[in-house]
Amino acid sequence: MIVWRIDVWAWFADPATWQGDDGVWHRLAEHSLLTIAAMLIAAAIGLPLSLWLGHLGKGGVLAINVTNVGRAIPVIALLSLLSLGFVGSDTLGPFGRAGLATLLTLTAFALPPIVTNTYTAMRGVDPDLVEAARGMGMSGRQVLVGVELPAALPVIVSGIRLAVVQVWATATVAALVAGPGMGRIIVHGYDSQDGAEVIGASIIVAAIALLLDAGMSLVQRAVARPS
């Protein structure tokens, strides 16, 4: 077994840790950019789709099972298949090597919690409430926007919360295959047998994951308050 020289404080204190293209600031920016981009794409696809399906009450089997299927697929499997396959591993602007494959993988793993939660939330809206709104002469669109959406919002936000955490984690693991982000620093630490680098970068990644989750739980609480 390799004995690591682990001096995490020294790693944190070293200015070289933070600067340059391989530095924490640059990798954090990449990681955040990936997370935000994937979340925006997933929300733009997943929210309208599952809101509509939930409103119509159709496609439930698909909406529920997408989470179960997503759980069984390893991140590095999907990313490897995409990057060696038709998507390729070309550099994509600020997303770096295999940028498109990484972005697609992150989006794929962000979609299940968004779709399943939104669908479940829409189906969970009190049918009497919807009936009453229809009775008042509201159109389908008005019912969806004015009645169902506000009632379903807390559960939808909890799905977005799960997705954010999922994407942050997936982006970290993506570094095993390619792609930019904080995972690169961790992988570099393993390759150069630098325990401090591995642990230091892992602490940063874990701390931000916890902060993201806590932040999203505040948002969740805020939208749940009126109801």
Binding site: M1, I2, W4, I6, V165, W168, A169, T170, T172, V173, A175, L176, G183, I186, G189, G195, V198, I199, A201, S202, I203, V205, A206, A209, L210, L212, D213
Partner: peptide, 20 residues
């Protein structure tokens, strides 16, 4: 909270405990 931590980071944080 444990579940929130990315797997690559969690495994790495456990390395000092149980090695590679």
């Amino acid at each position: 909270a444990i579940y929130t931590i990315p797997s690559l980071a969690l495994f790495s944080l456990l390395v000092p405990l149980s090695g590679l």
